[in-house]
Computed example of a mutant assay.
Amino acid sequence: MAAASSETDKCPIDKGLDPNDNSLDAQAERYRASPTRRTVFFYNDWRRARSTNRLWRAMRTIPESQVFGQIVSECSVIVLISIAACLLQLHGLNWLAVNLSFFSMGLPCLSLLIVFRTNSSYARWDDARRILGASLNRSRDAARQAVGWFPKTPQGQILKERMMRYVQAWPYSLKCHLRGGPGGCEDDDNLKETLAGILTPDEITLLLQSSHRPMHIMQCMTEIGREGNLPIPAQINLDQNIAAFSDVVGGCERILRTPIPLSYKRMTDRFLMLWLIGLPFSLAMEVTKAGFSVWMTLPVISLTSFLLLSIEEIATQLEEPFSILPMGPYADTCRNNVDGLFV
Rank of each mutant, 00 (worst) to 15 (best):
D239T: 13
V98H: 15
G225Y: 02
V287P: 14
I204R: 06
N241T: 04
A196M: 09
R254G: 06
T200Q: 10
V248L: 03
L298P: 09
L272P: 10
L238H: 02
D25Q: 11
V72T: 14
G69T: 04
P35W: 00
G291K: 06
L283M: 09
E203A: 07
E313F: 00
Y166H: 13
S173G: 12
L17D: 09
L80V: 09
N337R: 12
S121V: 07
Q240T: 13
A142E: 01
E319V: 07
V72Q: 15
L307Y: 10
K192N: 07
W46I: 15
E313N: 09
S120Y: 03
W170N: 09
F103E: 12
R270W: 01
L178P: 11
N190E: 09
Q70T: 08
T36Q: 14
A97K: 06
M105C: 00
R50N: 05
A26V: 00
R226D: 12
E203F: 02
V98G: 04
F322D: 00
N237D: 05
S101G: 03
S211F: 01
S323Q: 13
C86R: 05
L90V: 09
P12F: 00
E312K: 14
E203K: 05
S139Q: 15
L307N: 11
G106T: 04
A58V: 00
T333Q: 12
R124P: 02
F342I: 15
R54A: 13
S305N: 09
D45C: 01
A290N: 01
I232P: 03
V98M: 14
P154K: 08
S121H: 01
I324S: 11
L100E: 10
S282Y: 05
L303N: 05
W56G: 04
A58P: 02
A244M: 10
D21T: 02
R266N: 13
H177P: 03
Q70Y: 00
L136Q: 15
R257G: 10
E313P: 01
I71D: 10
I242Y: 05
E253F: 02
T61P: 01
L308R: 12
N241H: 11
Y31K: 13
L283C: 01
L87G: 04
I81Q: 15
T36S: 13
L191Q: 10
R213A: 10
G184Y: 03
N229M: 06
S104W: 08
M105A: 11
N190L: 08
V287L: 15
S34V: 02
P299F: 01
C220Q: 14
L276I: 07
A2P: 15
S246N: 12
L262Q: 14
G133D: 10
R32V: 03
C86K: 06
V167Y: 02
L274P: 02
P108V: 05
D332L: 04
G133K: 13
E227Y: 01
Q240R: 13
L307S: 14
S293G: 14
I131E: 06
R266A: 12
S310H: 04
G278V: 08
